[in-house]
Simulated scan of single mutants.
Amino acid sequence: MTTSFIARTTLAVAAFGALALAGTAALAGDQDFALLNATGYEIGELYVAPAQSSDWQEDVLGQDVLSDGQQANIKFSRDEDTCAWDLKVVYSEDNSSAEWSNVNLCELSAVTIKYDADSGETSAYGQ
């Protein structure tokens, strides 16, 4: 990944935005999801924070990394009564990152992220 990758990383993905409309409040744990890395790069950090929060909190991958093609099951133990979350991944290779806002984790059970080398964009798709 290069500097142009960082500059061109998509901060908000239109397809994800359509899926990310916040619903009603959820009970803790309803926001659990699987994250599939289809970027071609290793993800070193994953942050999940309540939407519009100014604090990313801790890396939910901990000491683990998520290699290309791998999936991580993200379990919530937080006491947040919200469906809208912001996601951020940080790549191991160069510490570049991609972010998505207002992801409705009450309606999604899986999130796949992809990197398009031709466009330089990282995108996310919910299922």
Rank of each mutant, 00 (worst) to 15 (best):
Q71A: 11
G69P: 05
V60C: 03
A22R: 14
D55A: 03
F76R: 13
L66T: 01
T2E: 09
T3A: 14
T24Y: 06
T3Q: 09
Q52I: 00
C106S: 05
A15Q: 12
W85P: 02
S4V: 14
V13K: 09
W85V: 09
G120H: 05
L61G: 01
A72S: 07
S4K: 12
V60W: 00
S119P: 02
Q71D: 04
S109D: 07
R8G: 11
L35Q: 08
L108A: 08
I113C: 09
S4I: 15
Q31T: 15
Y41W: 12
T2C: 12
R78I: 01
F76V: 04
N37C: 10
N104K: 02
I113N: 03
A28T: 14
T3Y: 14
W56H: 01
V48C: 03
L66Q: 01
V89G: 04
N102Q: 02
A12I: 10
A28G: 14
Q70Y: 03
L36I: 13
V48W: 00
T10K: 15
T10V: 11
A14M: 03
V48S: 03
L66V: 01
E99C: 09
W85A: 12
T39N: 10
A25M: 12
D59T: 03
M1A: 15
E93L: 15
Q127D: 08
L108Y: 10
L11M: 07
T122I: 10
A72E: 03
E93S: 10
A15V: 06
Q70C: 02
E45A: 13
L46D: 04
A22D: 12
A26T: 15
V13N: 14
I43Q: 11
A38S: 15
G120A: 05
G23F: 04
Q70R: 08
E42A: 10
A84N: 04
S109Y: 07
L19T: 11
A26Y: 09
F5A: 14
M1W: 06
L61N: 03
Q57M: 01
D59P: 01
D30V: 11
D30R: 15
S92V: 14
I43F: 12
W85C: 08
N37K: 06
C83A: 15
D68Q: 04
L35P: 15
G17F: 00
D64A: 08
G126W: 02
G69A: 05
A14Q: 06
L46K: 07
G40R: 07
D79M: 12
S53C: 00
E80Y: 07
D79V: 10
E80G: 01
A14T: 09
G62M: 01
G69L: 02
A124S: 07
A110H: 05
A26G: 13
A12G: 04
S101C: 08
V111D: 03
F33C: 08
V60Y: 00
R8L: 13
F33P: 07
S4T: 14
T24L: 10
S119G: 06
A18P: 06
Q70K: 09
